[in-house]
Nucleic acid binder design. Sequence first.
DNA 1: AGCACGCCGACT
DNA 2: GTCGGCGTGCTC
Length: 805
Amino acid sequence: MKGESALQVAQVIVDVPTRQTNSPFSYSIPDHLADQIQPGMRVQVPFGHRKITGFIVGITDSSSFDGKLKPIADLIDLYPVINPELLDLAQWLADQTYSFKISCLQTMLPGGMRTKSKKKLIAKNQQICAKYPEIFHGEPEIEYDRQQFDNQTLAEILKLQKMGDIRVEYNLTNHARPIMLKAYSGNLDQQEIQAALKTVRKNAIGQIKLLKTLSQHPNDTLLLTKWESMGVTAGTLKTAEKKGWVSATLKRHVRNPFLREVAPTKPFELQPDQQKAVSSIEKAVSQKKDQVFLLEGVTGSGKTEVYLQSIAHALAMGRTALMLVPEITLTPQIVGRIRSRFGDQVAMLHSAMSSGERYDEWQRINQGKAKVVVGVRSAVFAPLTNIGLIIMDEEHDSSYKQADNPRYQTRDVAKWRAAYNHCPVVLGSATPSLESRARAMKGVYTLLSLPHRINQHALPHVSIIDMKTEMAKHHSALSTKLADAIQVRLDKHEQVILLLNRRGYSAFLMCRDCGYVPRCPNCDISLTMHKDTHTLNCHYCGHKEPVPTVCPKCHSKRIRFYGMGSQQLEEQVKNMFPTARVLRMDVDTTRKKGSHEAIIDKFGAHKADILLGTQMIAKGLDFPEVTLVGVLNADSALQFPDFRSSERTFELLTQVSGRSGRADKTGEVIIQTFNPDHYAIQLAKTQDYEKFYATEMRVRHDGKYPPYYYTVKLTGNSPSENQTASEMFGIMNFLKKNLSPNAIILGPTPKTITRINNHYYYQIIIKYRKEPHLKATLDDILVQSQKKQRQGLQIAIDNEPLDFM
DNA sequence: AGCACGCCGACT
DNA sequence: GTCGGCGTGCTC
C-alpha cells in the first residue's frame, strides 16, 4: 500500500461474452505492476473461481463497487495493444453493432494474439493418479477438455476437486509468437583477433575461419544461418562462445509476407481529371478536414494513381495512411504498386497471410515502423496513429461487411476514424453502392469523377445470349456463340476467362426416374456433389455421406448429378477443347497459401489458355492477353429474394467487362442469361452506371429499401421451431409497442433456409427513417433474450444487413 | 463461460 | 428422510 496516495483501480473488460459482464470490472493494482500498467494492455485477472483474460480500459482513483477488490494477477502485454483511439472506437462499435465490448476489443487484434485458455487437471499425489485411470490414464497431470469426459466422470472430477485431491490450473497462451533466431556477435577487437589467430592450431580450420569472419564484421550481430552460409558451423561458434570470443543473442525475425521483390516506381503524370481529384484530396489532408470523397471511375481510369499520390501527400505531411481493399490476394498488382512506391514503410494485413506474418506486420504498425497500411476489412482497426488519409477501394464490395459479431460495416468504422484523426476518407469505385452515391448526390460526400479511360482503350464489345432459346437447342453450359468465340481465341493464341457465378449454383444429385434429391438430415438444403472426395456434402453443417449408386427411394440406377460446379465446368470445357490448357480458380484450388498467386502468375505468363472460376476472378485482375470473357450464368444472383440482387449483378458484370479489352486488342464479353431483358443486365452491357443508378433508386424508393430507409435484421434460432416462432412473435409485438407507427416491421418469417444443423431460423426486418427509441428497444430485447438463451434461443441483430435472406 | 446455490422428484 | 436433477444468478 502506498499510504495516502490515491488508490489506483484498474477498470477491466473481462473475456466473458455476456450481457451481465459487458461493463468494466474493478481490480486493484498490485504494487509491483503499478508503474507498468496502462489502459489498452491485457491482463490476467481472477474472476469467480478461475483466472481469465481481460483488457484494461481505464485507470481510476476509486471504484463504484462496494466489495473488496481482487488484485490483477498478471500482465499479458508489456505495452498497450489497444491504443486510446481504438479503446474509444471499441465502445462506439459495441453500441453500433449491438455486440459485446469484449468481442469488439478482440476483433481489433490480429487473430494470433487472441489468448486461449487451457485448463489442466493435476493429481495431488501418485495414489490419486493411480486410483482414477479413467481420468488420468496414468499421467500425473492432463489437459482438460470438457468433451472428453462423460457426465459421470465429470461429477467425479468435481467431487475430487472439492476434496482437494485434484488441482485445476488455468493457463492462458498467446497463439502467435515472434520467431527468435540465434545470432552471434564478436567480443574481440582487431588486435585481439590477430592475437587469437596465433594461438589456435594450424589445422583448426573452423576456428580460423570464424576469426577471419569476425575481423570482417567487427560490430555486426550475425544470424546463425548467416554464419553457416559463410562456412562457420554451429559447433565452432559454441566453442568460441565458451572461449569468450563471441556471445550468443536472440534476434527477432520479422517474417516478410511480400512474396516478391518489386522495383521502385516514380509517380506518373496525371490526367486533368486525376489532377483535380488529387488536389481536392490533398487540400482536405492539409486542412485536416474529415471530408468524405466518392471517387467514381471506370476500370482503367487511373484510380490507383490518385490513391498513391494522395498517400504520398499525407506522408509528406508527416502523417500515416490506411488503404483498404477487398480480399487483398485478389489484387496483387495493387499491393505491388503501393510497395514499389513506398517501399518498406508499407505493412500489409490480409487473411491469406499466416497468423505469424500478420502478427509481425501488426507489431510493425503498433511500433510506428509502418506508415502505410494496406489491408482487407479488419485492417480498418490497424493501430496506426496520426492517420492523414483513409482510402477504401471498391467501396461497394460486400466483403467490407463482417458477417458475424461484431457485424460492422468497414465504411462506417473508416469514417469514425477519419473524424477522430481529422483526415479525409476516399471511397473509390466504378460502381459505387447506392448508399454512397446517394450521399454524394445530397452533398454529404464530395463526388470526384474520372470518366475517361487512360490510353483511350475502346470498351469491349458486349453481347447477351438468351439461354432460354439456347437450352431448347442443346444442354451444354456453353452457348454456341461462346463456344465458337473461345475457339477463335484459341486459334489466335489469345486468352479466355470464363466466370461462373457460383452463388447457390452447385452440383446436386437427382434421380431421373422419381426425381428424388438427397438432402441433408440436419438442414433444409440438398447435398452438393464433391467429385474429388466422392461424397455428398452439406455446405451448412458439414455433413458428409457417400454418393449412392442406386436411388434410395425407387432403386433406379439412373441417379445422376445436375447443375454445374466449377469442377464440372472444367471437365466440360476440357472435353470441348481438348488441346486448350485450362486453369481453375475457386475455393478448392486456392485453399493453400500462395496458390492464388501461383494461378494468377501462371495465367499471366500465358501458361494456360482458359482461366475459369468463380467471383474471385472478377476483381482487379489485369491480363493483357485476355480478349474474351464469358459469363456463364449472369443471373443466378437475380433469383435470390434480395433487394440488392440487381445491384450485385450489375456490379459483377460491369467489373468483368472491364477485364477484357484493356490492351491493344479489342475485347469481347459474352454474357449468358435467362433474363436477357433485365435492366441490370441490359445496363451492364452498355456500362451505364448513371442509368442503372436512376433505375435502381426508383425501385428502392417504391419498395421502401435503403438508401431511402434504414434497416435492421433480427434473427432468432433454437432447436424447436415452435419456440423460435413464438419468441419471434413476442419480439415483433414488443417492437410494435415501442416503435413509432412509421416503422415498418416485416415478419417474423422463416428464413430461406429454415433449418441449419437442426436449429430453426426466423427473422424480422425493421425498416425505418427515424426511430429515436430503436436502439434502446433492441438493447432491451437482447437483455431479455439472455434469459431465454439457456433454453437454446439465440437472438442476433444485424444493423444495416447486406441482405434480407 | 463456468460454477454455486437452491428448490423439486425417486431412491438407499 | 437424502441424493441429485437442472433452473437461476453471480463473478470486481
